[in-house]
C-alpha cells in the first residue's frame, strides 16, 4: 500500500501524483499502479516522472476507467504500487536530445534531470509536443540545457537531428517512427519507449509482446525502451 501525498490537476485531464516513501528506479522505468482493491482488476503501467529522496511522482492522463478512478483520489488515499519494472533508457554520452509527445513527456523529466548531472553529457536538449497546452511550464527548463515545445503540430520537425549523438523519444508511434527515420538518415541512434497493454508487468504472461527485428520481446521486461530501428519498419 502506498499513501497519496497529493494528486494535483496540472492540465486538462492531466494529473501529477505524488507518493511519499523511498522508491527506487531509473529513468524510463515504470511502476504498476493499482487504483482499487477490486475493480478494475489490473494495474496500470505508469512511467517514473520524478524520484526525490522521499517521494515518487507520476504524470498521467485520465483517459479510461482506471486512470479516471485514480484522478479522483486525494491526499491520504491508498493505492497499490509495484516496481520499478522495465529496462529504462541506456547510459549514453555526448549531446542528447529528448523528444516527447503528449504523455510521452512523463519519463523524460527524470531522464533529463539525471543526464544533466553526468559529466559525460555535454548537452540535454528537450523537445516536447502537446495537442492543446504546455503542462508544468516552469519545470522543464530546469532539467534541460535548452527547452523547445510545440502545441498542436509535429514536435519532431523541431529537432536538428544531426546535432546530437543520441536521441531518446517517447510518445505517439508516428512521432517515434519519424524520429527513428530521421536518426537513421543522420546516423544518430534513436531509442524509443513504447507502450503495450500489460497484465503481469513482470514478464510472465506475454500480453505485452512486441515484434522486433530480433524476434518477439516483452515490453514490460525487455523494454519499454528499444532501439527504434528494431521496432519500426523503415
Amino acid at each position: 500500500m502506498a499513501i497519496i501525498k497529493s494528486n494535483e490537476r496540472v492540465g486538462e485531464g492531466i494529473f501529477l501524483l505524488e507518493i511519499e516513501g523511498i522508491f527506487r528506479g531509473k529513468p524510463g522505468q515504470f511502476y504498476m499502479l493499482k487504483v482499487n482493491d477490486e475493480y478494475p482488476l489490473l494495474s496500470r503501467p505508469i512511467s517514473i516522472f520524478e524520484i526525490t529522496e522521499d517521494t515518487i511522482k507520476f504524470l498521467y492522463q485520465s483517459s479510461g476507467e482506471g486512470t479516471k478512478i485514480l484522478s479522483r483520489k486525494s491526499e491520504g488515499d491508498a493505492i497499490y504500487l509495484r516496481g520499478p519494472y522495465g529496462n529504462g533508457f541506456p547510459s549514453v554520452e555526448g549531446k542528447i536530445a529528448l523528444v516527447g509527445g503528449g504523455m510521452g513527456a512523463a519519463p523524460l523529466y527524470e531522464t533529463g534531470k539525471q543526464l544533466l548531472k553526468k559529466p559525460a553529457i555535454t548537452t540535454v536538449d528537450l523537445f516536447l509536443g502537446f495537442s492543446y497546452e504546455l503542462v508544468l511550464k516552469d519545470k522543464w527548463e530546469k532539467i534541460s540545457s535548452r527547452f523547445f515545445y510545440d502545441i498542436g503540430g509535429y514536435v519532431s520537425n523541431l529537432v536538428p537531428v544531426s546535432n546530437y549523438d543520441v536521441i531518446f523519444s517517447c510518445g505517439p508511434d508516428v512521432m517515434m517512427k519519424k524520429m527513428t527515420e530521421a536518426g537513421k538518415a543522420n546516423g544518430v541512434p534513436v531509442y524509443v519507449s513504447i507502450e503495450s497493454r500489460m497484465a503481469c508487468g513482470i514478464g510472465a504472461c506475454l500480453t505485452c509482446t512486441c515484434h522486433t527485428k530480433n524476434g518477439n520481446r516483452k515490453v514490460c521486461k525487455d523494454g519499454p525502451v528499444f532501439l527504434g530501428e528494431d521496432i519500426y519498419e523503415l
Binding site: L41, R197, A199, L206, C208, T209, N216
Partner: peptide
C-alpha cells in the same frame, strides 16, 4: 509460436479477455 498479433488483452467488469495465442 509467435502468438497472436494485435491487442492481446481487454479488461471487462471483473474479468479479462486474452488473446495470447499460445506464444
Amino acid at each position: 509460436k509467435e502468438g497472436n498479433s494485435g491487442i492481446r488483452l481487454w479488461e471487462t467488469p471483473m474479468g479479462i479477455l486474452n488473446s495470447i495465442g499460445m506464444e
